[in-house]
Design a protein around this nucleic acid. Structure first.
Lengths: 223, 223
DNA sequence: CTCCAATCTTTGATCCATCAAAATTATCGA
DNA sequence: TCGATAATTTTGATGGATCAAAGATTGGAG
């Protein structure tokens, strides 16, 4: 059995590889994500490499092996199912379930996860719109455009928020404040490249402005 | 924050003190319960004593301090609420939730526990009939007679199974086989002191015989 | 091409939880 | 009361995860 620390490393590498496919994940990046010192990461990457879970090249970073990816997907599946369970069944708010899932993902049995999956009717995405790997660890790819993409191409199109690709409390607080939680209707009304901002309009004519960087983390689908 | 190991020790001591009030819990007993060597327990009891959680007297065993008892009750509350949640809300079987709760009790937040408590309508007992400490860590005492007590005093009285005071898989399997899960109707029909057994009758005239030791772990209330 | 700054690895140490085996203490039976 | 036996504690060691700080490597900027 992998320790809960090993699971955390694998999940972090998996998520980074997803953000930038094909590129090895840097030691320092992992250190930041996992809130440990770089030396700790180096040590851990070596033991992960010895266990055949990552390919590790000194000074070049790490990439998951097939086995490591399997394990990482397993953890990710648990994490996202738990998040959805906490929102749908327990009634917690979508913005507060991340930390809870972060701990529970290491403690739930396969049996309980299967039961949650069943109760939730084999869901495809979690409360943030991130895809939930299936029981066989397949990931159904999502193809949403971000608000930033939309600003560049299709001003004025009516959309629905499908995915928030940043789980940090600060970002979620912003999203909440602006009113952009998943499911909400939204329209990009203007793009100001010089100012690096985007104007959006939501329900009931409510308007807001968003930096392009933030807009790039909000994914939508046409309605 | 107490580590999950510390929580396990405190819970084990609490349960032992409950079984035999006033008596210090022996090192070896804890070693058995926690599946570690006696030397490990000695070391841990010292650090618990240093943290002011137990009173530890070499060769005499340990007793919880007020602080240790508080912490232990906290863990016990989490454990039992989780067990009930898994049975009532998630639909797992009462005989399989113990191990799951054993892991989850160290991972759930106060917020989630409060929410479970609310969903379950501030329950008084878990699926085994054990009392759930309240949010302020008060324990409502239960006063049920065991089947063994009943055999000695009141042959033939109709009762309802209220509590199974042994969570080990083997015992739960026996209880399931005989049909004595909490809530079932039961009547003691005979006591054979020489043979150390008890005859019982359940639903639809079904009969079974039980050792006195086992009968002592089944608690009932009159109907 | 060289050297500096940033990044990464190494080294030596700590803490927690654990074990095996040796040493100590208690206790019970004769 | 005296050992023998059972229970407990001590000792020395290990594995996992971590840190701080020293040393090595790399990739530009000039």
């Amino acid at each position: 059995m992998a320790t809960s620390t090993v699971e955390d490393y694998l999940k972090a590498i998996l998520l980074e590889e997803e953000r930038e496919p094909g590129v090895a994940v840097a030691t320092g990046r992992l250190a930041t994500l996992l809130a440990v010192t770089p030396g700790t990461v180096t040590a851990m990457l070596k033991t992960l490499a010895d266990s055949g879970l990552v390919a590790y090249e000194p000074y070049a970073g790490a990439q998951l092996t097939a086995a490591g990816r399997q394990l990482g997907l397993h953890v990710l599946r648990r994490h996202r199912l738990i998040e959805l369970f906490l929102v749908q069944i327990v009634g917690l708010d979508w913005s507060e379930v991340h930390d809870e899932a972060e701990r529970l993902e290491h403690a739930v049995s396969e049996r309980l996860i299967e039961r949650m999956d069943e109760m939730l009717d084999r869901p495809a995405v979690d409360p943030h719109g991130d895809p939930i790997p299936t029981a066989t660890l397949k990931v159904r790819p999502l193809a949403y455009a971000s608000l930033a993409d939309l600003g560049a191409a299709e001003i004025g199109v009516r959309c629905r928020v499908a995915r928030i690709a940043d789980q940090s409390p600060e970002f979620l607080r912003l999203v909440e404040k602006v009113g952009l939680r998943p499911g909400k209707k939204v329209r990009v009304t203007a793009l100001d490249v010089a100012a690096d901002t985007l104007e959006i309009e939501l329900d009931r004519g409510r308007r807001a402005s968003l930096g392009l960087r933030a807009a790039g983390k909000i994914f939508v689908e046409r309605v």
